[in-house]
Amino acid sequence: MKQLLILSGKGGTGKTTIASAFIKLATAKAYADCDVDAPNLHLVNEWKTEPKKRDYYGLPRAEINDELCTGCDLCRQNCRFDAISKAEKYMIDPFSCEGCGVCEYICPAQAIKMVPSVDGELMLYSDVEKAFSTAQLKMGSGTSGLLVTEVKKQLKSVNVGAQLAIIDGSPGIGCPVIASLNGVDMVLIVAEPSLSGISDMERIIKTAAKFGTKTVVCINKYDTNLEITEQIEEFCRRHDLPLVGMIPFDFEAVKAINNGQTIVDIDCASGTAVKEVYQRTMESFA
């Protein structure tokens, strides 16, 4: 199974809108949403069935047993994350705790235990023909790299005989993106013509280059700033990155999304453009 990953660097460039159109055009049998912080792909898919859900456990968190605690304060003094506070009793802030286990180790009264903690939820939609893997990280949790890996593993766990998997990546350049890049065959970058978009795109291309993954670029909402669109084209030429198409800003796209449709479900300018992007991406993929 070949994997196509769609990335953007900056959020809000239309990555999910394009991913959902690609899934439709490819009649993809396997797809995943690796944007575990704010997944959106499930909002535009056609699953009628409920997904199979399971809890995702990240790093364990500390818990204090008040009955055993002698109030020696060693845990608070040794916690580097300021996660332990003292009022009437000692409390652990689960959102600051990074699960290192120092407090458990240092406690002379064995009053602290590291306990598994639910950091998110994995969801798998599947039937005999196709599979969709997604997840939602719990607020404030910080182990999304592992969760991204789990999302991809979950997709592979269903055998639907798919030749191609389309993966909606996460924004940014950090850990979840690096996890989503692992093992993919090609990356499509959705760029947006803004100065912020350019600097983010450069960072994501550097990240992808480190992995040596084949990368192509498309420009979304290209007509909102033609000057910067030209700069992106120039950037692609300079770095030998194939530019596989440009998609205009389109009010109809917003309407389609709000109706739970993809932009290729209706007749609109952005839909026509994305079809070409799809064609050319697949040609570069072959």
Binding site: E98, G99, G145, G174, C175, I178, A179, T207, K210, F211
Partner: peptide, 13 residues
């Protein structure tokens, strides 16, 4: 011959 960059499945983000 090709080793990909560190795959930091770190916490925090």
């Amino acid at each position: 011959d090709e080793v990909h960059a560190g795959f930091h499945e770190h916490g925090d983000n």
